[in-house]
Design a protein around this nucleic acid. Structure first.
Lengths: 229, 229
DNA sequence: AGTTAGTAGTGATTATTATCACATAATGGA
DNA sequence: TCCATTATGTGATAATAATCACTACTAACT
């Protein structure tokens, strides 16, 4: 799924960003919190932001992770008065901050721009529901497979020996993303490794047999476009 | 969550519907199928439509059910070339059919209208993610509780003895909606009945103790607005 | 190079949920 | 009203995943 800013024409891009204020967030800094008034929407100039929902006191569920040229906070700004999730910088990040009212005015005066936002949200919704399907329909192994396939769609390069994932992958993060215990994720990945379905050097994974994953998730029914996280 | 057509001003409403063609769908008729080119978006004049994803050959997962004045097909039309889910009439329904291209033109020329669609989608996305949280975080009982709370938010009336749900509720449907086996749902509801948390006369349920459900789902963190199905 | 968080792997056990196999109840037509 | 569906309840069992408890590995930093 393309980041929102990469979907815009030059003039739309500038229109949006001339009204926005730059702000720096250090690694682990909170950008907004669940339940707070949704007063700003954010665009990522550089860095990476994790959007998550809290579950009780000790755990959370990652909703999505967004990077350069993408936006966060849209669900709160467009969907309600308050943010329904929280966002935190995964690494030092430069963001552009746009007031809720300004965003609404810009969009309501610019249908073409709104339509691009609409597409962006529709794709997120598709991704969210596909995720739900994978998680509920094929159990933990399906959830982990779904995560790998999506991650590979975002950060994978095709090589003769399989799809090499260029971004590091942490078991603990997968666990938080799919709400399956760390140990179970670890066991599933170990099993795949022992069967030669995946390989890894520390945090860098290679998917040796995409067919296995595609079959497991019945991927033939749905396109790859929105098969992301 | 308000149906899309109820969010529109009169002139927006008419603008949209003058370009749409009426069509009748009998109970159980397919409106569109997963994987087909997303050429139309639909508005519901009367009736009820279920949107679902298929899982293997025998089962499916209900994504949402939409009624009068609401729309379906938006994820396909705005989010990609093909429908990522299927829709079927739950009862005899009168729909208005709008061409994909027409919808895009109307919205791109009308920012205010687009913004309303944007809000509608953002709320759906919020609902979808909250659902994911409830299902994954609190197990099957959480999933069923989440379903009841959301259903009560849509069709519940407050009475001295609890919240009475005015629409019939079928265990089998809950099961399809939340991807928990019918038997497990049945057992959970039986347990609640034996504890006096819910009561029912056949398909009509009454929630006697909302506190229990709100505590179970840690509802204090999130508003009721989008807590729907 | 050694220390210290943070991350990962794995066995044993428990808890949860699906599945199978029926019995029973409710519903909607002829 | 009776029959055929369709929906529900429940025990027994199997499958799946969480939790606990610990060991081992890895990366980052003095």
């Amino acid at each position: 799924m393309d980041p929102i800013l990469e979907r815009l024409y030059h003039d739309e891009y500038h229109l949006l960003l001339t009204y926005a204020e730059p702000a720096t967030f250090r690694k682990h800094a909170h950008i907004f919190n669940e339940g707070a008034p949704a007063e700003h929407m954010f665009f990522i100039a550089s860095g990476k932001v994790q959007v998550y929902k809290t579950i009780g006191y000790h755990s959370y569920l990652t909703v999505f992770t967004r990077g350069e040229n993408d936006g966060v906070g849209e669900i709160g700004v467009f969907g309600g008065d308050h943010y329904p999730n929280s966002a935190q910088a995964v690494e030092d990040s430069e963001l552009y901050v746009l007031e809720r009212g300004t965003a609404e005015n810009l969009l309501s005066e610019n249908g073409a721009l709104s339509l691009r936002f609409l597409r962006w949200l529709a794709e997120s919704l598709d991704a969210s529901e596909s995720q739900l399907r994978d998680y509920t329909a094929f159990g933990s192994e399906g959830a982990v497979a779904s995560f790998f396939v999506r991650y590979a769609n975002m950060y994978g390069v095709v090589t003769p020996s399989g799809i090499r994932i260029t971004e590091p992958l942490i078991i603990q993060d997968i666990s938080n993303h799919i709400a399956v215990s760390r140990e179970t994720v670890s066991r599933i990945v170990s099993k795949w490794k022992s069967r030669g379905l995946v390989e890894n050097h520390n945090k860098y994974f290679m998917l040796k047999n995409m067919d296995y994953f595609n079959r497991l998730l019945a991927c033939d029914q749905c396109g790859v476009e929105n098969c992301i996280l």
